[in-house]
Nucleic acid binder design. Structure first.
Lengths: 143, 143
DNA sequence: TTATTATTGATAATAATAATCAATATTAGT
DNA sequence: ACTAATATTGATTATTATTATCAATAATAA
């Protein structure tokens, strides 16, 4: 994801809603973009704490929700873990392979599966808006 | 699912582990089997309360976990809702279409998708053990 | 019937997420 | 640059789902 483009998206979203572009929002956005994918609020908070930004947990939480609102982040939940946020802008839809041993998350995509899902919905008189496919197992290393 | 067969499974599981077959377990099992699919602990607890069985919330919770352990129930989580339990014995694997308006959950199955999922895992050097496919949208009524 | 011990039910603990609110910072208007 | 208006922050508390605790009770085997 392009950093400037991401900042623009956040900035425009904020202007549109008469919100305010704060030091904390800039910091959280940049750190979120630099951080690994599928990060939790707590993890992001800890990275920011190490940087001595003085940003509180609640602010991190609130602003990840904001990033989601403006389309920069997606929320996901694996099993009974905490909610994770992944970068969304400029990312095409993808599914997840989740290693139950080491926790690694592999992003994958299969057009045929996507198409069959749409068909499956159609056959059931159902209008699909989004979907979630997660395959749990063990990755190459943990086999 | 056959009621007697279900009771047998629970009974044998209990014997095997030197646990005890209590009035509460029998009551919870029967009510779980009669109740709608995809029920929460709270919902099941409320049904049992109406029946004046005097069974506590913790007991319902504990025993749904037990049903899961012995293969009679499966746990699922939709969005950020509470955990739901569905009958598992004698049910083949299936995916879910979830109406975001009325909350209805439709169970579906597609062998081609299943096979493609296995292929997808294989290509990524991943050993699949189980998977979860949820399609969110709106059902016929809510369209 | 009795001894053993698993279970129950009420309650407290835990943990993730969201709400509260006074102090502060940002923004628009002058 | 100054000011007024108000969105945001950070610390804390509230909420909610789930799990743990524990004394009293009930199920089981001998």
């Amino acid at each position: 994801m392009d950093r400037d483009e991401a900042r623009d998206i956040l900035f425009n979203f904020i202007k549109e809603k008469s919100l305010r572009y704060t030091r904390q929002r800039e910091e959280i956005l940049q750190t979120f973009l630099s951080a690994g994918r599928h990060i939790t609020v707590e993890e992001l908070y800890n990275v920011l704490r190490k940087k001595n930004t003085g940003i509180g947990y609640a602010t991190v939480h609130r602003n990840l929700k904001l990033m989601k609102e403006c389309g920069l982040a997606d929320e996901m939940k694996i099993g009974s873990d905490k909610t994770r946020f992944e970068q969304a802008y400029g990312q095409r839809h993808h599914d997840h392979l989740i290693c139950m041993k080491c926790g690694r998350i592999i992003e994958v995509n299969d057009d045929r599966i996507e198409r069959l899902q749409d068909k499956l919905a159609e056959v059931n008189n159902f209008f699909p808006l989004k979907h979630k496919l997660e395959i749990y197992g063990s990755c190459k290393k943990c086999r």
